[in-house]
Design a protein around this nucleic acid. Structure first.
Lengths: 341, 341
DNA sequence: TTGTAGGCGTTATCAG
DNA sequence: CTGATAACGCCTACAA
């Protein structure tokens, strides 16, 4: 049995009438605005509770011009990453009394713009993550007044608040790690062609090789798209080539798993014959066989930091000073990499 | 440089004035309600576009009593699962012109209730997934008028719309698979104590053993919580015991991975010495070493079905007939299970 | 400390 | 086909 049917709609007037006060007074207790006699306050609270009154958010935001909602636009993220970011975002958001409006799966620019348009007026601030697309061009359509934080987008300058992962540093460190183990033929499995993270990681890889004076070969850089399947294909390509690498650095963990799987199928041992490394350090990485050497990214923190920045931007209004922030990465050594034989 | 600053607020009146018509007419073209002269309609559209006018959603929903938003309450999901459900949900939602308000991480009943309360009035419908908590008790607080779809909750009867995974069937099938391979000492790694899915899977496992007339031992059922770490611990416990299993059926894939990792560390071969099976078939399962035999669940479809049901409920209003739906599962045989030696 | 009344931007119901 | 105008539920000066 369900409990007593809720009335069609309990408004502030109902509460006021029942309590024998004006609506203004009820409003005051619900907003802590203006003084209210302690006793009346209690009475109103009680009656509101009994009547199951809760302020209508539409009416409220119509006049306050605030929605208490934050928008989050994400690309079509693959697996683990998505949930981690959301988790980070969510935690802080809730604490600040905000709601979260999410939107994802944006293949092209048009779709993102549509999503952006749809959110207009429904949110007090926006987190936009779009590693594949030119972010500034997108944000151009957003009302100036709406605070925006760019996540992992290709932006320079500090015209916008932006947060990015230290992809270059991480990839650089990993490549150095492999170099230090004696590897010279180090292959790299790239992420999507137009993906910002992917590009940066590739840059880090190249920079490290160049810094070490190691000759670079085009056939050691193979295409990928951040999926296990792509990693597997890439590894097969590398094995088939005549410049076989002694180490494979995958642009992310999923591709590293795919590569390890393909190597195993081909009878190649990891790390004895070939070392394999990844990027992201998703939870399963530690439980792979062998456990994967990778670059750690605090994904949930990325989301948290974004919200923290956004909340501050909302709070500070026009006085807010925009800036870029970079989230550090660090190498996690496990058993999938070893000295060149 | 950012483009021209957006005016403080463009309202329907601005458009009306500019077009030399009344607000009513403008409203009509934006809602396709009532007839409007084709030519005037065009003019209004053009002016609205130029002025970058877009109807204020708060004002609109104040009078229409609709928010065009769907609420989604999820538990604190681990990894893969979360993103897949959201992905499924999102797709349909967007197509229907709805927005998605998400909320998650609800440890206890109080938190869920708070989240539920917070969503009141902000959504036209609700998807509630809460495998850990008594759902009917929660839904009692929701206004009768608000359509709700329960996902994977412990409910019986058809008082609510509900969708559940065929956990029992899947676990039953997997256990039979192991039995057919000749295994008799089949261990089961359980999910959280109070988790609905976990309980159902355990039931399926037990039923299959009983059906086959295989004696059941308490020490073959070990505790877990759906994380890799728990799976690893459980496997160690099983290896240490004196009734060592020849097969391990983990309540989900993550725990299966953890178990495989522990077995490897202990020098136990999979599947030669011990078979291992999981549940969920998350993407990485196919790339494990060895590839994991598991039970496939169409997670994204779960989300899709939930939204489809919810939209119908909203559409049909009071005439809506509530019902239970069960999402099938099926066994995916890979290399982590083999005949008992 | 409390009440009155105007208005937030739309939609909906009437008359024209 | 079009235009006034009254709600929708709430907040917020301003007045008492």
């Amino acid at each position: 049995m369900r409990p007593a049917r809720v009335r069609s709609k309990v408004t502030i007037r109902d509460v006021a009438r029942e309590a024998g006060v004006s609506v203004a007074t009820v409003s005051r207790v619900f907003n802590d605005s203006g003084p209210v006699n302690a006793e009346t306050r209690e009475r109103i609270r009680a009656i509101a509770g009994r009547l199951r009154y809760s302020p209508d958010s539409a009416a409220r935001s119509l006049i306050t011009r605030r929605t208490n909602t934050l928008g989050v636009l994400l690309p079509d993220l693959y697996g683990e990453f998505f949930s981690e970011v959301i988790r980070g975002i969510h935690q802080l958001t809730q604490r600040g009394g905000y709601h979260v409006l999410v939107s994802s799966s944006h293949a092209d620019k048009g779709e993102v713009e549509a999503a952006l348009r749809a959110m207009r007026g429904r949110v007090d601030g926006l987190v936009l993550m779009s590693p594949d697309i030119d972010a500034p061009a997108l944000v151009a359509n957003i009302p100036d007044a709406l605070p925006v934080v760019l996540l992992n987008c290709a932006v320079d300058g500090d015209e916008y608040d932006s947060i990015m992962i230290d992809n270059v540093g991480g990839a650089f460190a990993m490549t150095q790690h492999l170099l230090a183990l004696g590897h010279r033929r180090i292959a790299f499995i790239r992420g999507g062609e137009r993906n910002h993270d992917a590009g940066e990681r590739l840059r880090g890889y190249r920079a490290a090789l160049e810094g070490a004076g190691v000759e670079q070969h085009a056939e050691l850089e193979v295409a990928g798209d951040f999926t296990e399947a792509a990693g597997s294909r890439a590894a097969k390509t590398l094995l088939a080539g005549d410049r076989r690498p002694t180490a494979i650095f995958a642009g992310n963990d999923s591709m590293a798993f795919g590569a390890m799987s393909a190597l195993r199928d081909a009878g190649v041992r990891v790390p004895d014959d070939v070392s394999v490394a990844g990027f992201d350090d998703i939870p399963i990485a530690a439980y792979m066989s062998p456990p994967l050497t990778t670059v750690r990214v605090a994904i949930a923190e990325l989301g948290e930091l974004a919200i923290r920045t956004l909340l501050r931007a909302i709070d500070e209004g026009n006085e807010h000073e925009r800036r870029r922030q970079v989230l550090p990465t660090w190498l996690v050594g496990r058993q999938s990499t070893g000295p060149r034989r």
